[in-house]
């Protein structure tokens, strides 16, 4: 019996200590980690979508509430004076989630550009969604009334040959971005000013 209590006590104390220690480290590194994610994943995508802005989309980022899930929005003032926003959505590809940063011009309701942020697709095949600009450029300038599904499914997007699933993931993410934007536009515009 004593042995039993001993075992339980040691394990409990150890786990509690471990939890406490980790919570401390987590709290200490939280801000730094957020900065790193911004710098290495989001910043290059934002830079690609808004090559020239008169403001700093990264510094002016804000959060809005999308049905209980917080969504990070990057506002950009384009060089021709129009306003745009960029945010990230996800679609499921063949190796898992494909993150897509979607830039939308708020004044004209058209897509500025899209960029793939994260993916774990097969190198050389699905990864072309990120590396090969001709696929992503299909989205540029399209109005938000476009259906971004594959052409085979009655949409307007050409799939990359040999990488149908990845192409689908990107189009799912783009359609999702469209829906979120249409739903939350008043909120986004309010926050931007």
């Amino acid at each position: 019996m004593r042995e039993m209590i001993n075992m339980v006590v040691v394990l409990t104390v150890l786990t509690a200590l471990s939890g406490g220690l980790l919570a401390t480290v987590k709290a200490k590194t939280e801000v730094q980690i957020e900065n790193q994610v911004l710098k290495f994943q989001k910043a290059p995508a934002i830079k690609g979508i808004f090559p020239e802005t008169t403001n700093d989309p990264l510094a002016e980022r804000f959060m809005i509430d999308n049905e209980g899930v917080p969504l990070q929005v990057f506002p950009g003032k384009l060089s021709d004076g129009s306003k745009a926003v960029a945010f990230e959505t996800k679609g499921t590809g063949f190796g898992g989630a494909v993150g897509l940063m979607v830039g939308i011009n708020v004044d004209t309701d058209t897509i500025v550009e899209v960029r793939v942020t994260t993916h774990s697709e097969t190198p050389g095949i699905g990864s072309r969604a990120k590396d090969d600009p001709s696929f992503a450029s299909q989205f540029s300038g399209k109005g938000l009334d476009t259906n971004f599904s594959m052409k085979a499914d009655g949409g307007a997007v050409d799939a990359m040959s040999g990488a149908t699933v990845t192409s689908k993931a990107v189009s799912v993410a783009a359609n999702q971005a469209k829906e979120i934007y249409q739903k939350l536009k008043p909120e986004i515009v309010k926050q931007m000013n």
Binding site: T92, G96, A97
Partner: peptide
């Protein structure tokens, strides 16, 4: 871990 990472 893959299951969680890929948000299945």
């Amino acid at each position: 871990l893959i299951n969680i990472k890929e948000e299945y």
